[in-house]
Design a binder for these strands. Structure first.
Lengths: 116, 116
DNA sequence: CAGCTATATAACTAGTACGGCATATTTAGG
DNA sequence: CCTAAATATGCCGTACTAGTTATATAGCTG
């Protein structure tokens, strides 16, 4: 399963963040979040399928821990957009007011753009 | 709408990447992707709701362009996991084989962890 | 073994997502 | 005005999601 889909759910992101603080059992995770234990188990299953977490059985407990590797894919996807952050932030504010009105610089084409 | 959810769909990520190469009209985007025009319009609506893109009407055309700002939220969410990447990458390989078998280092607890 | 604890799975439900086709809307152009 | 082009919206079917409760499974303990 792809990490983007796995991280789409806010509760799963919460679980990841919680696990980021160290390995946890299902019980501990269930307490931290406002969900039933089965719900947590299912989210963990999705995270496992995405390989975002790994499990270590220990008697009747299961210690879940973060596996950050698949997050690289997310990070790499973000990469091309990074250089745009700084540049466009000022433009954003300017645009928030007149989003509907201004056509591109030229008449029918947006002219060459920053990535040219 | 939250950027994670917006990016969960692979087609929307494709549209974002396409737009990363410069502003495009709906028609152009529709050609690039294997979807109907209405489908593209709907995806663009979601991206707009997440403020990941902005539109500029130009006659009957609409020029869509990336607004990278919300991607910062994603990037910031990744931040805490970054330091784990390097460290755990070697451990991962080791684990790929014996994920089910090895109990934690200690008997009932995973012993102290990096931050416990 | 009996019973408790910890976790996973099953069955069900309500809501939402994504696609398609058809249609509305807006603008351009003769 | 009438038509065509570009885009958005409505409606529908199918599929998946995320939650619940109930139950199964596995280990622990007396």
């Amino acid at each position: 399963m792809d990490p983007f889909a796995a991280l789409a759910d806010p509760n799963r992101r919460l679980l990841m963040s919680e696990l980021g603080r160290g390995p946890q059992t299902v019980g501990a995770l269930t307490e931290g979040i406002g969900l039933s234990q089965p719900a947590v188990s299912k989210h963990l299953r999705v995270l496992r399928a995405a390989e975002l977490v790994r499990v270590r059985p220990d008697g009747q407990r299961r210690w879940y821990e973060v596996n950050p590797a698949p997050l690289r894919e997310v990070d790499e996807w973000l990469e091309p957009f990074r250089r745009q952050w700084a540049q466009r932030l000022d433009r954003l504010e300017q645009h928030l007011d007149d989003t509907e009105s201004t056509p591109p610089t030229e008449s029918t084409e947006p002219a060459e753009h920053d990535h040219r």
